[in-house]
Design a protein around this nucleic acid. Sequence first.
DNA 1: TTGAAAGCGTTACCAC
DNA 2: GTGGTAACGCTTTCAA
Lengths: 343, 343
Amino acid sequence: MSKRTKLKDIADQLGISITTVYRALNNKSDINLETKREILELANKLGYRPNLLATSLRKNKMIPLVGVLLPIINHYFFSTVLKGIMAKAHSQNTLIIAGESLQNPVKEKKILDQFMDQGVSGIIMAPTRNSNFEKSIIPILHKRTPIVIIDRMYDHYRGNYVLTDDFGGGFKATQHLLDNGYKRIAHISSLDNISIGAERRKGYIEALNAAGIIPNEEYIILTDIDNPDAVIEKGYEATARLFKLKNPPDAVFAVTDDIAIGVIEYAKENNISIPEDLGIVGFSNSKMSNYIRPRLSTVEQNGFEMGQLAFDYFTKASSSYGEVFQKTFDLNLIIRESSLGKK
Amino acid sequence: MSKRTKLKDIADQLGISITTVYRALNNKSDINLETKREILELANKLGYRPNLLATSLRKNKMIPLVGVLLPIINHYFFSTVLKGIMAKAHSQNTLIIAGESLQNPVKEKKILDQFMDQGVSGIIMAPTRNSNFEKSIIPILHKRTPIVIIDRMYDHYRGNYVLTDDFGGGFKATQHLLDNGYKRIAHISSLDNISIGAERRKGYIEALNAAGIIPNEEYIILTDIDNPDAVIEKGYEATARLFKLKNPPDAVFAVTDDIAIGVIEYAKENNISIPEDLGIVGFSNSKMSNYIRPRLSTVEQNGFEMGQLAFDYFTKASSSYGEVFQKTFDLNLIIRESSLGKK
DNA sequence: TTGAAAGCGTTACCAC
DNA sequence: GTGGTAACGCTTTCAA
């Protein structure tokens, strides 16, 4: 692999000055057309491409870069968060380096390092399920690079964040099912021991407690929702397990809409009528939730708005000293057909 | 906004040399611990952060960046393409700058310029519907930055691409409907005059011709599918128009699954039974297509694989002189309930 | 119309 | 231990 052609190479070969070459290549005036032609020809032959590093350094112009790291990039919620971030970023001439951690803390750490090496002026990230706060976040805070955490939370994190009230969402969803006469409410949850899944689960349990119902261990199914292409299937399987119980549930609160769709699948195939025999509430307000039949009641999560706010917080954090920005979005329950009550 | 602190600022303030400051900040040996402490303190106070441009220029090393520009980032197909690109990129220590053109050629051009300013070593893009080849692509080719076009095509483009056989997909979908006994097949198409939409439309027309059917102008509805949140509605409206005709169609081939879902919506609300009274085929194999009822027959598009290949092509193009890499994926028809034939 | 030279901020080398 | 200085490749100013 030969070395990259630079202005000097062209100048030397033609026995002229760097400046002249520069003028030719940048369409400046004051240049002999014939020499210009020669220069362009040689430049083309040598495959000259300007070194943007040098150009930017000289011009002292650099487009700011922000690193965005998400667990799963082709997940509707996360890709919508990314869209929200980009909407703001583009309007402020900031570029986004995006990465996908695939729920792998090692990968997460590696990508964060690369972001830092690349010189991002900030990081917006949704941590993986098992993210290591010490290893991933501390070094970034140490380098005084602004960071905004979205969607999930670290235990002792005290920095900028944009979250949703998952506990409240789980509580509302469960309470809604109770209000509509369901008694034996199951919950299909994710494997998270921290954050999101756990919060929704806590909300579910708390709502049962508040109604004087003792949560039934058998009604809580933990399932792996990491692979977006398999989640619906997981919901289906979990429902199958629930309906093998001596006393199957009469309602399911699912940790995500995709899981809920798996529940609906199972119900349809087994002639369990919704909402009469089985009430269902999902979580996310995915597009599909409104087009599946029966239409799925769900907890609304506004990824776009969260993304926008996260970027705003990055901007604010960049130009403030140590001030911290935090927001927890309340979640609204969208009531549709799948939870309208028993016959 | 004050100027950014640099090594010289710290050196001047402490009356020492740049070199010493440099050593302190980069944990080099040969430095007095006391001066080092002072330097670190001041650096911290001034919020010193190294200028990466200068560092990289000097070290002549930079993590390669590839710009990826997609029309809509939270669209399942495109976010899956992005996932495919990232899978390859991460494994090769390349970072991805992602951008969203929102189907706006002006925005597209602007983001491409920013990518180039940022010094990307390549670009992978799905052009917007009205992308201007001259304006968007030529300047990049001119700077000899490798570019890989995915999903859509420019008329006279002769570079690297990864496409799907949209014509073939449209042909297969239409032929399948014909094979199942539908006679009056309508097509809800996008407004594209080039690429995707037009190709699928051509496939539709060609399949009709091949069967000796003269395409009926009234059965071809062009609709705007730019706004992902409104596409289903557009499909609904288009279907309403079709059913106002004196002789409504008995089948619809929809340019996307979302459009097809709008068709199904309309049919359900108007007691038109699927597939007996109306056969439907969509396009994309979106997740939803398999969970809506009746399950939607559709043409399969593998975004992940396309993304991976696009990145491979970028890699190959980077290390070859002028060689061109092109691939058109065949598309498979997935036959489900929505097109099983007339009663 | 052309060229020399001084930067941009960091790093590496050599001398003190 | 410390400091001077020459690069990295491009852009801009000033002089010829």
